[in-house]
Amino acid sequence: MAFRGTLVIDIERCKGCAVCTTGCPNKCIALSKMVNKKGYNYLEMINEEACIGCANCAVICPDGVLTVYRVKI
């Protein structure tokens, strides 16, 4: 069974700690070169096709930045 997932990232809430990137099994998220209003490099998806919606990133995000959606394919 295969899954496709995606994230909705609340970039103004993100503090750019990058802890979530260590939890991602497929390395589909990374910090952006852009900054948010507070001056943090916020999180962005770099490989949207690889996301399986496992929610590992959201489970260890300290600031509740991420909303995760997943469908079976």
């Binding site: 995606t6 919606g53 929610a55 959606y69």
Partner: peptide, 9 residues
């Protein structure tokens, strides 16, 4: 993918 029924977290 982003639909209320697909929400997991």
């Amino acid at each position: 993918i982003i639909k209320p029924e697909n929400l997991v977290y």
